[in-house]
Amino acid sequence: MVAALNIENLRKVYGDGFEALKGISMEVKQGDFFALLGPNGAGKSTTIGIICSLVSKSAGSVSVYGVDIDKDFPGAKKNLGVVPQEFNFNMFEKVGDILVNQAGYYGLPRALAAERAEKYLRELGLWEKRDSPSRMLSGGMKRRLMIARALVHEPRLLILDEPTAGVDIEMRRSMWDFLKKINEAGTTIILTTHYLEEAEALCRNIAIINNGDIVEHTSIRDLLRRLHREVFIFDTAEALPELVEVEGFYVRRVDDSTLEIEVEKGQHINDVFAGLDLAGIRVTSMRNRANRLEEMFVNLVEAAA
């Protein structure tokens, strides 16, 4: 089966000599929910810009559903929907017009364009705002408008560049549900995000890019399996003694009623509780210190640096 996106030896050198991409290669399978992660300036947006023709590549090849962008860019673009990081619609245009016009640029007749615009505005909760100028929308609504606009021609591959940046938790969750739904319906999704729990919650496969190189390209499950340790935080019922020890575990006393305990791969959390019980410490609650993927991400990026 042809890949939804295939990138080979993609290189980008900007006019000032800065090499943003150093010959990256990656593949995204059809139907995948794929995370493209990396620190600021790693090359994520450059990669997306090249795929959707806003940035010209210096070398390498890109194919969208088997269509090489060098041979048939319009054909490749038909399969592609892009939600960029920054708002890039005309703030004076009405919400409904933005979608209908975008559909028109893909050759959809006016009646079909209007039908699609209604469908996606309703699905993303913007139908009531269809006659409002887009500048009147809240930040979250503008984000949803960008997603609706990218979907109006029903692309097979949807690329979202930090779609939930600046969106409140409730809105973010509803956007996750929507993205899961369209992915289940067959749309391949590539997501860049700074919220690593978002990637963990939504994506099946991942590529981590740093300084223009792919430092990891695997499944999320595989990546998490490789975690060597996790740090748990325990809140205690009573004030803690100055020295707390649990045999076999590294323990750090944070304050009078909080402990941090590292659990290595192969160790059991039950043993931690047993040790705390033995020390006469009663636990009222427990949580991860950090998102697991975040920890892995930081390790990989630091190792690559």
Binding site: L54, P74, V82, E86, N88, N90, N101, Q102, Y105, G107
Partner: peptide
């Protein structure tokens, strides 16, 4: 220039419109 300034020209540039 307005489309360039507010980046809405990208709506056209990412589309298959020749």
């Amino acid at each position: 220039f307005g489309s360039k300034f507010n980046h809405s020209i990208e709506e056209l540039l990412v589309s298959p419109t020749p």
